[in-house]
């Protein structure tokens, strides 16, 4: 049960390519890649700004410890880019979450 999301790449990959979007732009990733790897390999190395200094942030620890690489995946805010595997059709959004009350559904 709990592995079903991670197994999705198996069926979604078309010709070895997973199509996702980042802030509305289409992006191609490889099956099995993490969102962080997919972005970084496209030259996108920062996708979040810090609250105080608005400093850019991307991958740091790479293993789910530092929470620096947070982004929004299919409407779920504050997911760790280093841990989420790309899925066909995934909508990825950078920056901090705006308003959690508007996040309650409809999107997926």
């Amino acid at each position: 049960m709990s592995t079903r999301a991670r197994g999705a790449a198996k069926t979604a990959a078309i010709g070895g390519v997973v199509r996702v979007s980042f802030d509305g732009r289409p992006l191609e990733a490889s099956p099995g890649q993490s969102v962080g790897a997919a972005l970084t390999s496209q030259g996108i190395t920062a996708w979040r700004a810090t609250r105080k200094g608005e400093r850019p942030r991307g991958l740091f620890c790479g293993i789910g410890v530092c929470f620096d690489c947070l982004l929004t995946v299919d409407g779920s805010a504050n997911q760790r880019a280093c841990l989420v595997e790309v899925r066909e059709g995934m909508e990825i959004e950078g920056s901090c979450r705006e308003d959690p009350s508007e996040e309650t559904g409809g999107r997926a």
């Binding site: 959690p100 009350s101 309650t104």
Partner: peptide, 8 residues
């Protein structure tokens, strides 16, 4: 505050 359901 119902929005808190979606907050960690």
């Amino acid at each position: 505050f119902p929005f808190l359901k979606h907050v960690k």
